[in-house]
Design a protein around this nucleic acid. Sequence first.
DNA 1: CGTTCTATTGACTCGATTCAAACTAAGTGG
DNA 2: CCACTTAGTTTGAATCGAGTCAATAGAACG
Lengths: 263, 263
Amino acid sequence: MQKGFAYTKLADRLTSIAELSEDDLELLTGMPCTIGHFASHEQLLRKSDRPSRCCLLLQGYLCWKDDNDGQITSIHVPGDIPDLHTMFAPRLDSRLSALGPTVVAFVPHAFFEEISASSPNLNRALRLLQLADAACLRNWVINLGSRDSLTRVAHVMCEITARLQAVGLARDNQFSSPFTQSDLASACAISPVHANRVVQELRRKQILKWQSRTITINDWPALCRIACFDAEYLGLRDQAVAMRHRPTTSVSSTKGAEPSITP
Amino acid sequence: MQKGFAYTKLADRLTSIAELSEDDLELLTGMPCTIGHFASHEQLLRKSDRPSRCCLLLQGYLCWKDDNDGQITSIHVPGDIPDLHTMFAPRLDSRLSALGPTVVAFVPHAFFEEISASSPNLNRALRLLQLADAACLRNWVINLGSRDSLTRVAHVMCEITARLQAVGLARDNQFSSPFTQSDLASACAISPVHANRVVQELRRKQILKWQSRTITINDWPALCRIACFDAEYLGLRDQAVAMRHRPTTSVSSTKGAEPSITP
DNA sequence: CGTTCTATTGACTCGATTCAAACTAAGTGG
DNA sequence: CCACTTAGTTTGAATCGAGTCAATAGAACG
């Protein structure tokens, strides 16, 4: 059951960026994995680790965080494989930590090697997954480099929302936010105090709500406008297509409700 | 002659990050390319382009620059292939421009596909080249996100120096700087005026000289200290090894002197 | 039901931006 | 070869966005 869940998450993500055949999806069902649960701020990978498996995020949020200053350099949502690059270069220069409670499927590097060798489609999809991460990084540089704090925060909100939606979550513009305002501040490279003031401004403008660990985007167009957000860099295909193999389910209900997997 | 020059640049760069056999190097010599010259601030790739070839930088500097705000997200030195990712996803989200006059070898995507298929070593080397770019991006995020202007500028200086040295340039801690202080400012996400003040501070502290389009690092250890620079993220192998197939030449003389290639 | 983590508020400070002007180097054409 | 033009660098003064510090309020958790 959990393995089937892991399969679904990966399939959703890969089909959001590349076209896969029925055979490709069939190959994915053979994915071996073990499930791991992590508490908020727990570290999945440290700088010294030399992993031989990847982390496929199933539920919650992960982030890459610099060892020295705690700067968050990327945020990941279910379906992502934040450490896919460890297949080719196992060296790490920062740590992978959980933002809120998370569920992860550990998949041996070997599996991805196999499917890359067997299917050109899957090989391409995995490469695009890596490129999407790189594109996000470039966008993150732009965000920190040339936008004021309000725009930055809005942009991070937009990115999270869009990426969740690409894998069938947050369809109603609402998603769970188990992370703190300090986490948001680390992502936007502003102080926690100022992050709070910006969030309040977004609330005052009726653009979003953030209460009881849930964020609701009330005015998506306005948020995008403030954020200068253009989803193109995410490399997503037509989103309707992306969900084709998986009819709409209750997944889109509030707080990122999911098949419950408890530790 | 020029083709041989292009071969050398690529070989230097690839051996700086991966071990290659004699056969691998032999394969590289078959690289087809056409040479292109560009003036300062000229654009090699625009957002709308869908290239079928890569740019191997032979001389000078290239940078990726955001279309909207001009933020520089990465800087490239000879031996780099800034647009290697266009092989897999030809979409661009920013523009590739020259920082100062540059010489570039255009290499068809097909060539890299061929050598990746023929040699696992080369395949790995090219993947590492992409990963090194991603690591630089992550580092760039940290630079903009959590360091003050002096540290940022120092860090960019360190990165350029280290990357030049990895391919046998700037061995005497001196290199040509055809870019302006405004370019440096765009890279560090500070105002041109402030960039100037920071450069002056580095000069006053006797850490570097910057005159007649040449930068000389007088106090490398001090610069690294200010910059919090640790070259590990560049993914370089032992630098002595990297240059093994190419005995020291006059390349290391001042101002990045090179076999002259004129338009 | 207290402890702890998170969010909120106000006052003060500071790094960096902006604007404007002056200065210098590097081309360009007569 | 010099006068003119243009691009780049340098300087000072005023301003502002964001950080810091410190104290309070509120929510979550055992």
